[in-house]
């Protein structure tokens, strides 16, 4: 028996239709169930690390070093020594908005000399739990009291907790401004959170 081209194409088409219908049918209807079957619904909630400065700007305003003084010390705890800056009681506020504990480091985007200038300036940070967030920052705490903050990553909180009322910290700053420094100055604070 010899098949012509038309017959061959017809048979192939029919075969393709049958095979396609089989797969389509299997996709849409699955297979018939004749007994009780159990199924499992599985969901995985992944962890997500995220930090946010809810207060991202701290402006000490304008002032100058009192005449006859080598320099002035100002901080955001409300201290102004030998200078005319207005008392500052603000701070940066950092929130762990993720759903996992983090190790937190702080650093700056420039050196203190580039920031303040003049003779022997200093720039220090102090980290504490925000009011009502007791226990937010635990473990290694380089900045539990005012300590130099610079371009080197230093651990501010060995563990910065997440969630609830214990995921927020205050970061205060203290500047020593020499009397030969002058101008409008800014510096960036970089907070990096690493999952524990």
């Amino acid at each position: 028996m010899k098949l012509d081209n038309t017959e061959i194409i017809s048979y192939i088409s029919i075969a393709v239709i049958i095979i396609s219908l089989f797969f389509i049918g299997a996709e849409i209807t699955g297979y018939a169930v004749t007994e009780n079957e159990t199924a499992i619904v599985n969901v995985t909630i992944s962890t997500s690390a995220a930090l946010e400065f809810t207060t991202a700007l701290l402006d000490f305003g304008s002032g100058y070093v009192n005449a006859g003084q080598a320099g002035a010390t100002i901080n955001s705890d409300g201290t102004v020594t030998d200078g005319t800056w207005a008392v500052q009681n603000g701070e940066l506020v950092l929130d762990n908005i993720g759903n996992i504990n983090l190790s937190l480091t702080l650093s700056t985007n420039k050196t203190v000399a580039d920031f303040i200038d003049g003779l022997n300036p200093t720039f220090k940070a102090k980290v504490s739990d925000t009011a009502g967030n007791t226990g937010a920052c635990t473990g290694t705490q380089t900045f539990s009291s005012y300590a130099e903050v610079n371009q080197t990553l230093q651990t501010a909180c060995g563990k910065l907790a997440f969630g609830g009322d214990f995921d927020e910290i205050d970061i205060n700053f203290e500047l020593y401004i020499p009397n030969d420094a002058e101008g409008a100055k800014t510096i960036g604070i970089i907070a990096i959170g690493t999952t524990l």
Binding site: L57, W85, I190
Partner: peptide
């Protein structure tokens, strides 16, 4: 999304 996360703040002073 457990990669290291960073955020930034700014300190300003006018001398």
């Amino acid at each position: 999304s457990d990669a290291d996360q960073s955020s930034g703040g700014v300190i300003g002073v006018d001398i």
